[in-house]
Computed example of a mutant assay.
Amino acid sequence: MKIAFYGSSILSSYWNGAATYYRGLLRALARLGYDISFYEPDVYDRQKNRDIEPPDWCKVIVYEPSAQALLRVAGLASEADIVVKASGVGFEDDALLREVLANSRPDALTIFWDVDAPATLAQLRAEPDHPLHAALSQLDLVLTYGGGEPVVYAYRAMGAADCLPIYNALDPETHHPVPADKRYTGDLGFLGNRLPDREKRVESFFLEPAAGLPDQRFLLGGAGWSDKPVPANVDLLGHVGTQDHNAFNVSSKAVLNISRESMAENGFSPATRVFEAAGAGACLITDAWLGLELFLKPDEEVLVARDGKDVAEILQSLKEERAAEIGQRALQRVLEEHTYRHRAAEADRVFRRFAKHPATEAAE
């Protein structure tokens, strides 16, 4: 069973928060027997900042950001039984979706896989003439990596045949406990790129507590923060590759998850960082969002903060022993319920359910 997957990048996490989602899910699908080709454009210096080399479980085709190259790779959709166009590819997304659908076989299962559904839906509401509106009537299915019922109902109301979430999860082979690394030791670490709908929340949940706790060390990792004014006790680390995420997560007393504004407002949108931190056995503090308890139990497997004041209070009272206990409970929970093996099984059932002919009903 062949899947043609058009996404941002599977080789690089540089300005690409979906990388670990793609890697974990597609590797697990490959183990179920799917033959996967992943098409990614050479944009945003991602190929200069690769975290991994092309894997043996997926064929990766990197194409130049040109109209000719886009048409060439879109034409290869005709070879696939399942054709996936992800959101946020990064080069001529609308044209890519149009061409991929035009080249897909009539018997192929066509999917729009939205890795930022709350933001996409907000754009669709603001732009009635957005090309995705028309494409929804051509697609067989919309899948998302979060959003819950609010996103499902919204996509159905906009004309999608159906919409289902395949949530983020843990890849235990990539994210797992490791020894602490002195480069990342501190009291609280946050890892995330500087994005417009996240920056104010980082100021509130991370920088303000840091300013109020000058005797504690805070670590800020991610691209785009180099010119951001920060308190003296905040270390700016720059881009932290996925190969260092485990060390980053385990070396501080706690790590912080801050949802993007659209995802926090929608709820049911656990970031990849949630599962990466839990998989490393880290003590996670997260901003509050609806649906969290579906993934981790507050106060036992994760600590929840409504604002920066809560973050500061948690840090002042959090002992190393309790932090370690929370991290171990979170690790056990995600291993039992939230790995990409679990998510791939869900995706496989979805593919079977929506298959157009017997050959698509299972990976052979």
Results as ranks from 00 to 15, higher is better:
180 A>R: 15
33 G>D: 03
172 P>C: 13
283 C>F: 11
311 V>R: 04
29 L>F: 12
242 T>V: 13
198 R>I: 08
156 R>T: 06
333 R>H: 01
137 S>V: 02
151 V>C: 02
95 A>V: 08
305 A>N: 03
239 H>W: 15
224 G>A: 07
192 G>H: 14
178 V>F: 09
174 T>C: 11
150 P>H: 07
188 L>H: 08
14 Y>L: 10
334 V>T: 02
272 T>D: 07
192 G>L: 13
25 L>A: 00
326 I>E: 07
143 L>P: 08
9 S>Y: 13
192 G>R: 12
333 R>E: 06
39 Y>E: 05
154 A>E: 15
172 P>R: 06
115 V>Y: 15
135 A>T: 05
175 H>G: 05
62 V>T: 15
92 E>R: 09
309 K>Q: 13
28 A>S: 14
330 A>P: 05
126 A>C: 06
219 L>F: 08
121 L>D: 02
24 G>K: 14
342 H>C: 06
220 L>C: 08
315 L>E: 14
164 L>T: 14
83 V>F: 06
303 L>P: 00
142 V>E: 09
150 P>C: 06
93 D>V: 02
283 C>Q: 03
262 S>N: 11
83 V>H: 00
188 L>K: 08
212 G>Q: 06
95 A>F: 04
209 P>M: 09
27 R>Q: 14
199 E>V: 15
277 A>T: 02
94 D>I: 05
130 H>C: 09
322 R>G: 01
173 E>C: 00
145 Y>N: 15
75 G>H: 07
31 R>T: 05
342 H>L: 03
173 E>V: 03
326 I>Q: 03
337 E>S: 08
91 F>M: 09
98 R>C: 07
362 A>W: 06
42 D>E: 01
68 Q>V: 15
333 R>S: 01
19 A>K: 06
141 L>F: 12
351 F>M: 10
128 P>N: 08
125 R>I: 06
340 Y>C: 06
242 T>Q: 12
283 C>T: 01
57 W>S: 00
70 L>W: 05
331 L>E: 00
171 D>M: 12
151 V>Y: 14
306 R>S: 13
349 R>V: 04
213 L>C: 15
206 F>V: 05
269 S>G: 01
195 L>Q: 13
42 D>V: 11
76 L>V: 00
1 M>C: 01
31 R>W: 05
189 G>A: 12
14 Y>R: 03
103 N>K: 13
133 H>M: 03
29 L>V: 03
85 K>S: 10
329 R>F: 02
83 V>P: 02
290 L>K: 13
251 S>R: 10
333 R>C: 11
198 R>Q: 09
335 L>A: 09
169 A>Q: 07
187 D>M: 05
349 R>Q: 12
129 D>K: 14
30 A>S: 15
148 G>M: 14
12 S>F: 12
150 P>N: 14
11 L>G: 13
18 A>G: 14
163 C>M: 13
193 N>K: 04
181 D>R: 10
316 Q>T: 14
72 R>M: 14
276 E>W: 12
182 K>T: 15
306 R>W: 11
121 L>F: 07
